[in-house]
């Protein structure tokens, strides 16, 4: 009996030892030579567009992996897929670690991992433009005394509107028989509609040449070649359109009056009362990301340095407000 046990053990041993030897002589099969073209996993994620069905949470994945036949996706939100190019709807905003494991038929695999940051895109809203000193408060200018016109001076185009008060509030005044103006550049979204609101008072009719207030919205495309607008918020550093303070984008009345440069022209004649009358009009910014609001008194003769003058009456403006029109 003992002999038999020994014999069995001996046979077992032979088997154990010889198995290894046997494998050496097997024909090459799986994994017997290195994988010359191992897979390389690669992918990208494209966010969907739209809000109605929260399409922005739906991501399309593209697969740029090479030398692979099987794909396993983990989207980091509990969802998985084995499609070549799956889509996944994420539960909401957040950062998800997405991984793609690409495997070939030899069992060699490669994994690529990316953080996908899901953020709800901002609905394309047009912001209200920033108007500096739209209430015509007496503020410091870059030269000279404080003025309700501060922030609104371009000496290439006229003389400054002056400070005045009405019911204790600062207003800007366009003198009679003078080329007074106000001018300000501001940033807009192209092709958007804007509403301009202002309050205007003409003095009592007096004389043969009545004053009208002309309001123009000028296109930034009409700026002097090479000019880039700068949107100052501090009136004390603003150019005033001369050599000591610097120049604006419009340099001459001819440029102002060129029809191609005008997005809107409103002319307000004397209504025959001396109240502050509200004026509202709209304009579209067209192919511009910068525009100008320009106002001047007209109706007088064409003498003087600027070729225009206000008529016989003073005109005052209490404020200017510009807002984006909601579509």
């Amino acid at each position: 009996m003992k002999n038999i046990i020994y014999k069995m053990i001996a046979v077992l041993l032979i088997f154990t030892v010889s198995c290894d030897d046997l494998e050496k002589y097997q024909l090459p099969e799986a994994n017997s030579i290195p994988d010359e073209t191992p897979p390389v996993a690669s992918f990208s994620a494209i966010q969907g567009e739209g809000f109605e069905f929260e399409e922005w949470t739906l991501y399309q994945f593209t697969n740029g992996s090479t030398s692979a036949t099987m794909y396993s996706w983990n989207f980091g939100d509990g969802n998985t897929s084995t499609d070549f190019e799956p889509t996944n709807m994420f539960p909401g905003e957040g950062t998800y670690t997405v991984s793609l494991t690409a495997t070939d038929n030899l069992g060699v695999s490669s994994t690529s991992t990316q953080e996908v940051v899901v953020v709800e895109p901002e609905a394309p809203a047009v912001p209200d433009p920033v108007i500096v000193n739209g209430e015509f408060v007496k503020l410091p200018k870059s030269s000279g005394s404080d003025c309700a016109c501060s922030g609104w001076i371009n000496r290439d185009l006229g003389e400054q509107g002056e400070s005045s008060t009405a019911s204790g509030l600062d207003v800007v005044k366009f003198d009679n028989n003078e080329p007074d103006h106000i001018y300000q550049e501001f940033e807009v979204v192209p092709n958007a509609d804007y509403l301009v609101e202002t309050s205007i008072r003409h003095s009592t009719t007096d004389g043969t040449m009545p004053s009208s207030l002309e309001i123009r919205v000028l296109a930034g495309s009409g700026y002097e070649a090479g000019y880039t607008p700068v949107y100052y918020t501090d009136t004390a550093v603003m150019p005033q359109g001369n050599s000591s303070t610097g120049y604006w984008g419009y340099r001459s009345i001819a440029q102002v009056e060129n029809a191609d440069n005008n997005l809107k022209i409103q002319v307000l004649d004397n209504p025959g009362n001396d109240d502050y009358n509200n004026v509202v009009f709209s304009f579209n910014s067209g192919a511009n990301d910068s525009v100008v609001l320009f106002m001047r008194g007209i109706g007088g003769d064409s003498s003087g340095n600027y070729g225009y003058n206000s008529g016989n009456e003073e005109i005052r403006s209490a404020y200017v407000i510009i807002t984006a029109v909601e579509n």
Partner: peptide
């Protein structure tokens, strides 16, 4: 170009 990557437009020139 006026749509500028958005989903729609009603700008008059467009």
């Amino acid at each position: 170009a006026i749509m500028a990557g958005g989903q729609e437009t009603n700008a008059a020139s467009a």
